[in-house]
Measured scan of single mutants.
Amino acid sequence: NKFNKEMRNAYWEILHLPNLNEEQKNAFIQSLYDDPSQSANLLAEAKKLNDAQA
């Protein structure tokens, strides 16, 4: 299933973003579980936030 793979990839990438705190990571990961079809968008948002907090 495409979403499972996308979701897993997004999950791991978000988990390893160095500039997000636990609360931010948890919020993105919760959103992933709530709507796996948004994995790519959530990952993009997480990366933007990560870069902004660098």
Rank of each mutant, 00 (worst) to 15 (best):
N1L: 04
N1W: 00
N1K: 02
N1A: 01
K2G: 14
K2M: 11
K2P: 09
K2H: 12
F3Q: 03
F3H: 13
F3P: 14
F3G: 04
N4H: 09
N4L: 06
N4K: 02
N4Y: 08
N4M: 03
K5Q: 14
K5A: 05
K5P: 06
K5N: 07
E6S: 02
E6Y: 02
E6W: 01
E6M: 02
E6Q: 03
M7I: 06
M7T: 08
M7V: 12
R8E: 15
R8W: 15
R8G: 05
R8M: 10
R8A: 15
R8L: 14
N9W: 15
N9G: 04
A10H: 03
A10V: 05
A10Q: 02
A10D: 02
Y11V: 11
Y11D: 01
Y11Q: 09
Y11W: 09
W12T: 10
W12S: 04
E13D: 06
E13G: 14
E13W: 13
I14K: 00
I14L: 06
I14H: 00
L15V: 13
L15S: 07
L15R: 11
H16R: 11
H16K: 11
H16A: 12
H16Q: 08
L17S: 04
L17K: 03
L17F: 09
L17H: 06
L17P: 00
L17T: 02
P18A: 11
P18L: 08
P18Y: 08
P18H: 06
P18T: 11
P18N: 12
N19A: 12
N19K: 07
N19Q: 11
N19Y: 10
L20Q: 00
L20S: 00
L20W: 00
N21H: 09
N21M: 11
N21R: 04
E22G: 14
E22P: 03
E23D: 09
E23A: 07
E23M: 11
Q24D: 05
Q24T: 10
Q24Y: 07
Q24A: 08
Q24K: 07
Q24E: 10
K25G: 03
K25V: 08
K25D: 00
K25Q: 07
K25E: 01
N26S: 12
N26Q: 06
N26E: 09
N26I: 10
N26Y: 12
A27I: 11
A27W: 14
F28G: 01
F28P: 00
F28S: 04
F28T: 03
F28V: 05
F28L: 13
I29H: 08
Q30F: 13
Q30P: 01
S31G: 07
S31V: 06
S31H: 06
S31I: 05
S31W: 09
L32A: 01
L32W: 04
L32T: 01
L32M: 04
L32Y: 01
L32R: 00
Y33M: 05
Y33L: 07
Y33V: 05
D34V: 04
D34P: 06
D34M: 09
D34T: 12
D35M: 09
P36W: 06
P36M: 05
P36A: 06
P36F: 07
S37T: 10
Q38K: 14
Q38R: 13
S39T: 06
S39W: 15
S39E: 01
A40V: 15
A40T: 12
A40R: 05
N41G: 12
L42F: 10
L43A: 12
L43N: 03
L43F: 03
L43Y: 04
L43T: 07
L43S: 09
L43K: 09
A44E: 15
A44V: 12
E45N: 07
A46P: 00
A46R: 00
A46D: 00
A46Y: 01
K47F: 05
K47T: 02
K47I: 04
K47V: 05
K47P: 00
K48M: 06
K48V: 11
K48S: 10
K48D: 10
L49H: 07
N50A: 07
N50Q: 03
N50M: 02
N50V: 04
N50K: 02
N50D: 09
D51R: 09
D51W: 14
D51M: 09
A52W: 12
A52F: 09
A52S: 12
A52D: 08
A52R: 11
Q53Y: 11
Q53S: 07
Q53F: 09
A54D: 10
A54G: 06
A54E: 08
A54Q: 14
